[in-house]
Amino acid sequence: MSGQSQESFPCGEAVVFAVRGEIDIANATQLCAALLHATDRPECHCLVVDLSRVEFMDVSGVRALIECCRVMTWEGRHMVLAEPSAAVERILSAPLGLDRVFEVYPIVEAALVHTAHQRYEEGPFTGVRGYE
């Protein structure tokens, strides 16, 4: 899976949201809400979800990412995934057709190439301890 195979367009501003810990049925809904809240500004056109520190993700985490992507697309914005950890890569590479849903970049910097401005936001989200 690669973001290079997807159509990209220039963005005014991107937010990088770093997720850490576990994403499962207990917190997937909160993850989607936190991702959407991080981009709740008119000038933010792109969300880059940094998954490098995710230790575990199940199918409910995938559903949350799909829902967030769907909402952002409906609003005329987009979401990309970056640096998936080994745990995330396992589920993204399963034969679910997720390569047609997500743009996935090997590193955050590659995901930011199409943006004019970027803002890094350490996500207040972790599946291990809940909101901080």
Rank of each mutant, 00 (worst) to 15 (best):
S2R: 15
G3Q: 13
G3K: 11
G3W: 11
G3S: 12
Q4N: 15
S5V: 14
S5A: 14
E7L: 14
E7A: 13
E7P: 10
S8I: 10
F9V: 12
P10F: 14
C11V: 15
G12E: 15
A14E: 09
V15M: 10
V16L: 09
V16M: 07
V16G: 09
V19E: 08
V19A: 10
R20G: 04
G21M: 08
E22S: 13
I23H: 12
D24E: 15
I25F: 13
I25Y: 10
N27G: 13
N27M: 11
N27D: 13
A28K: 00
T29I: 09
Q30N: 09
C32E: 12
A33M: 04
A33W: 03
A33S: 06
A34F: 00
A34K: 01
A34G: 00
L35H: 04
L36E: 03
A38M: 02
A38L: 04
T39N: 01
D40P: 03
D40E: 10
R41W: 06
R41S: 11
P42W: 08
E43I: 10
C44V: 15
C46N: 09
L47A: 07
L47I: 02
L47D: 01
V48F: 09
V49R: 08
D50H: 03
S52G: 09
S52M: 04
S52T: 08
R53M: 04
F56Y: 15
M57T: 03
V59P: 02
S60T: 13
G61S: 05
G61L: 04
A64W: 02
L65Q: 06
I66V: 15
I66F: 08
E67P: 02
C68F: 03
R70L: 01
W74A: 11
E75Q: 13
E75R: 13
E75A: 07
G76L: 05
R77D: 06
R77Y: 01
R77M: 03
M79V: 07
M79Q: 07
V80L: 05
V80I: 05
A82W: 01
A82F: 02
P84D: 05
P84F: 05
P84A: 08
A86F: 10
A87E: 13
A87T: 08
A87M: 11
E89Y: 11
E89W: 08
R90A: 14
I91Y: 01
L92G: 09
A94F: 15
A94C: 13
P95I: 12
P95Q: 11
G97T: 02
D99E: 12
D99S: 09
R100N: 10
V101Q: 02
P106M: 04
I107L: 12
I107W: 04
I107V: 15
V108S: 03
E109Y: 05
A110P: 06
A110N: 05
L112D: 03
V113W: 05
H114C: 03
T115V: 13
T115M: 06
A116L: 07
R119Y: 00
Y120H: 06
Y120C: 01
E122R: 01
G123C: 00
G123S: 00
G123P: 02
P124Y: 03
F125Y: 07
T126A: 00
G127P: 14
G127K: 07
G127C: 12
R129W: 08
R129L: 11
Y131R: 15
